[in-house]
Each structure stands twice: as C-alpha cells, then as structure tokens.
C-alpha cells in the first residue's frame, strides 16, 4: 500500500515537472538567446554572453518606432473598448430585455468566426473607407479582439452584485448614480480590471489584423516580429520577444489572484 502510494506520488511529481518543462522550456530557451553572442549546435549553452543585441534593438529606429506605436495604440484601444462595452455589459448583466440571449449567442458566434476571415472582409470595408494603413484602421481592428473580454467578463460581474447591496445604498439616501458609482462599480471592479488586462493583452498582442491593415505604413510590436523573424538574427528576435512580454509580465503581477481565482472562467458563461 505504502509503496503504491509512493509510486503514485512520484508519478504525479514527474507529470507535473514534465508539464512545467513543456510550458517553460521554449520561453527560457528563447530568453537565453537574447544574451548570447552566438550559439553552436548542439551545445546547450551559448558561446558567449552579451548585451549587444539590446543596444541594437534600441538603436534601430524601426524597432523603437514599433514599440512606441504599440504603447500608444493599445491604451487608446482599451479605453475606447471600455467606453463602448461597459455600458453594454451593464445592460446585459443587469437587465433582461428581449433578444438579450440572442445577442449573447450572436456575439459568441461572431467570435467563433475566424479572425482572419473577419479581417479579410474588414479590409474590403477599409479600402472603401480609406482606412487602410491608418492608425484608426488598426485601432478598429484591435478593438474587435477586445469586445468579447470587455463585455462578457464585466457583464457577469455586474450580474453578480447582489441587488440588496444596491437597495441598501438607495435606502441610505444615495441617488441611482451614486449607488452605481460607489457600490455597483466598486464591486464589479476586480472583474473589470481583469477585463481591462485581458483586453490590453489582446490588443497589444494582436498581429494578423494589424499587419493586414497597417503594413507597410505602420508597424506595431507584434507585426514587427514577423519582419524580424525573417530579416534579423535570432538574438534580436529574442530581445524583442522579451520586450514584448514586459507588459504581460507586469500585468500578471497585478491580475494573478483574480485570474487564478476563476473570475475569467465565470465570465464566459451565458446566463
């Protein structure tokens, strides 16, 4: 009995370690390349270590420009997304109106439509409206990817705020607006924060659509990656990858407990 138990423990441990290696291996391997002078197959360590590639990236105007573009566009996208979607999320979460469920299903269906196909048809629209190669075009394209996050997660959070908490505030003398501001919004805030972070990442990482709409005029960091992979040494791509991951890593720190707390999972259920 004890031997079997020990064996099971070892099995579980091995499986867990294998999974972690599977997840972390590629990232660490790529990360190591960012500081390597060169790499000889089949060595497991670089020939030498350097920060040369970092200087190269920051000195390259195209690369630095892409970083700036990304950092500029993404917050705008998230902001617009929040302004458009949060009222809708509140309506969906709080009111039942005819077609509410249809709307949810429709949105899900639209989300099931392959993005690249959506971009293809958007491209048609953008040609007609002269939005190809413009910042507005990219903003719209990136906006599309954020809508699902920005609507569903907050909607379920709004729905989860107990009515009695709002009524207690009304009874205490607060107007509807004050109740929304001080009670409803506050209680939904962690989920909204998660939605904002997910939207930020979705927008920041969006490549296909931005490439289609933006190239060759405007490059964001991810679309620049496509070019990098083909035209630069692997170490530059590695450096750029690390830079591209920085916002994500910062946001993990902010959002970890909420996301792991299952808020995300809850957000994706139609009620």
């Amino acid at each position: 009995m004890n031997a079997r138990r020990a064996l099971r423990e070892i099995g579980i441990g091995a499986l867990a370690i294998a999974l972690m290696a599977f997840i972390l291996g590629p990232i660490l391997w790529l990360g190591a390349h960012a500081f390597a002078t060169s790499w000889t197959f089949p060595r497991l360590s670089a020939d030498g270590w350097t920060t040369h590639w970092w200087h190269e990236v920051f000195a390259d105007s195209a690369l630095a420009g892409a970083i700036r573009t990304s950092l500029l566009i993404t917050p705008v996208v998230v902001l617009i997304s929040a302004v458009i979607c949060l009222p809708a999320a509140y309506a969906i979460g709080r009111h039942s109106f005819p077609g509410r469920r249809l709307f949810l299903i429709g949105m899900f269906a639209a989300n099931a439509f392959p993005k690249i196909g959506l971009f293809a048809s958007l491209a048609a629209l953008f040609y007609a409206m002269n939005l190809m190669g413009t910042v507005i075009g990219i903003v719209i394209v990136q906006l599309l990817g954020t809508i699902v996050f920005m609507t569903w997660i907050p909607a379920s959070a709004f729905a989860a705020v107990p009515r009695s908490l709002e009524e207690a505030a009304r009874d205490a003398g607060a107007s509807r607006l004050t109740v929304f501001r001080t009670i409803t919004l506050r209680l939904a805030m962690p989920s909204i924060l998660v939605a904002v972070i997910m939207s930020f990442l979705a927008s920041f990482d969006e490549a296909q659509g931005s490439y289609l709409v933006g190239a060759p005029n405007i490059y964001t960091m991810p679309t620049e990656m496509y070019a990098l992979v083909e035209n630069y040494p692997i170490q530059v791509a590695a450096v750029f990858s690390i830079l591209l991951s920085v916002p994500s890593v910062i946001l993990i720190g902010l959002a970890r407990q909420h996301i792991i707390g299952g808020r995300l999972a809850e957000g994706f259920q139609i009620r």
Binding site: P162, S164, L165, E167, A168, A169, R170, D171, A172, G173, A174, S175, I183, R186, L187
Partner: peptide
Amino acid sequence: ERRPSAMVFQQYALW
C-alpha cells in the same frame, strides 16, 4: 433615498 425611513436588510446587505 428621499424617504425618512431606514431599513435593516435580511442578509444585512453590508458592502
């Protein structure tokens, strides 16, 4: 909010 009454809710409804 404009009535001079105050209520204690069943589940207390504390924020």
